[in-house]
């Protein structure tokens, strides 16, 4: 499985959400096929709610982990 990382720290919603959605849309096929895992680093707390909800509606899973001063959102196919 491939992986990619997006560091959008400093960005706030909705641009952080739109940036992630743009990449999710671009890589949608690979994400749905379970061939790719995206890792998003964000320091915007609102994004930890909007990003997982938006991608889960597309049938893609998102897990949020709180790290030191920022969050890590892992996006991958549901069930993986």
């Amino acid at each position: 499985m491939k992986s990619m990382k997006m560091d959008i720290r400093g960005q706030i919603c909705p641009s952080s959400l739109l940036l992630v959605l743009r990449e999710v849309n671009r890589l949608h096929r690979e994400l749905k096929a379970g061939q790719l895992c995206m890792t998003i680093l964000t320091d915007n707390r609102a994004a930890t709610g909007t990003i997982p909800e938006a991608v889960s509606n597309m049938g893609i899973n998102a897990n949020v982990a709180k790290l030191d001063g920022y969050y890590r959102i892992t996006i991958h196919k549901q069930g993986d």
Binding site: L18, N25, N57
Partner: peptide
């Protein structure tokens, strides 16, 4: 240039597919 409508529209398309 950023085209948020395009992004959201494509997102909706994927949501609909799902």
């Amino acid at each position: 240039a950023f085209d948020p409508i395009g992004i959201v529209a494509q997102t909706f398309q994927h949501i609909l597919e799902n």
